[in-house]
Simulated assay, not measured.
Amino acid sequence: MSIVQNRKLIWFFGLLTLIIGSNFLLYRLEMMQPLPHTIALATLLDFLIIIPLVTYFFFIRKRYSLKYLVLVGFAGYGAALLIIPQGYLGSYSYVRYILLAGEGAFFLLELYIVFKLVTKLPAIFKYYKQKQSDIPAFPHRMEQALTHYLKHNRFIEIVSSEMSMFYYSFFSWRKKQIFHDNVFTFHKKTSAVALNLMLIHALVLESVGLHFFLHNWSPTIAFIALILNGYTVVLFLADIQAIRLVPFIITDQSLYLQVGIMKRLTVPLKEIKSVRYYQGPEKVSKEVSKQVFDAVLSDFVKEKPAIEIEFYSPQEVKKMYGLKQKVLFVHLSPDEPQKFIETLNGKAVL
């Protein structure tokens, strides 16, 4: 699998280099002069059609929404403007307006989805409150509430991720931790919270210095960098709260594993093949890691997982912004590993 992936990357970047490099040299080698003005149209076709098609067949097909082709097209148009000398583009200014029209149509579609979301917010929040006793954590409840009233798609998954992030960052500070026999914390014996606090501290200091440095060069870029850094601070705060407030939960039907704000996995107990103490290497290979849900928190020194869970069939890990991963194993380190194993073995049919 890794070899195939590497070959795909080599082919993709090889074709990309060939297309961009040949067009770049075409306008700059004296031996190719003089060029007809219509050559600019051929370059635009390369960057607006060929490169998006190559990107589609190598990466987007069967994995991501076709709307990403719009972004690739805009990036290609920007690259073409940098490569084609200005004198060649005078006859093709209409291409810009075609792209803007396509982007406008895409924006109107997204605006319509937002409008539908806003109009259904009261019903969504009502459904969310009704489901509080059934589903243990905010992202699970909010995703179910959203998909109950709206068609499930990547945009809804992004909205759910954003709502979860802002909930944990700003509205969860009075919420108390859950304590009962089927709940298992996994952060008390680690320095994960302290690590995130240290990163926030470093990011705030870096943001102040970088903002003043960039402001002398470009106020716009300085403002954008400040917003991105602020967003990252909010993300780290949400991660801290989610780690504290959302433990591993075992119900009569499912095992809920949420690791901060970044990723979560819900597994039916009937899909659990085995639960055992981890006996593998401290660092698994890249090939094996693709099949493993790593539920061990980041720390100053990464520790070996305490427990390994194996499934009968691949299970879907949900990450932020709709990203997904299929896994056959889970590596985790609850604060009470022995009790966790006994409880899970008592509920799962192994």
Rank of each mutant, 00 (worst) to 15 (best):
L205C: 12
L205M: 13
E206R: 08
E206V: 09
E206T: 10
E206K: 10
S207P: 11
S207Y: 11
V208Q: 02
V208S: 01
V208G: 03
G209H: 07
G209P: 07
L210D: 12
L210Q: 13
L210P: 08
H211A: 11
H211V: 07
F212W: 15
F212P: 10
F212E: 12
F213V: 10
F213R: 06
F213Q: 06
L214N: 09
L214C: 11
H215L: 15
H215P: 13
H215S: 15
H215A: 15
H215Y: 15
N216S: 11
S218W: 03
S218M: 04
P219G: 07
P219Y: 04
P219R: 02
P219D: 07
T220I: 14
I221W: 12
A222H: 06
A222W: 04
F223P: 00
F223V: 00
I224V: 09
I224C: 03
I224K: 02
A225N: 14
A225T: 14
A225M: 13
L226I: 01
L226P: 02
I227V: 11
I227M: 09
I227G: 03
L228Y: 06
L228H: 04
L228I: 05
L228V: 03
N229F: 00
G230Y: 01
G230Q: 01
G230P: 01
Y231L: 02
Y231D: 06
Y231N: 04
T232N: 02
T232G: 01
T232F: 05
V233K: 00
V233N: 01
L235D: 07
F236M: 08
F236D: 04
F236K: 04
F236E: 02
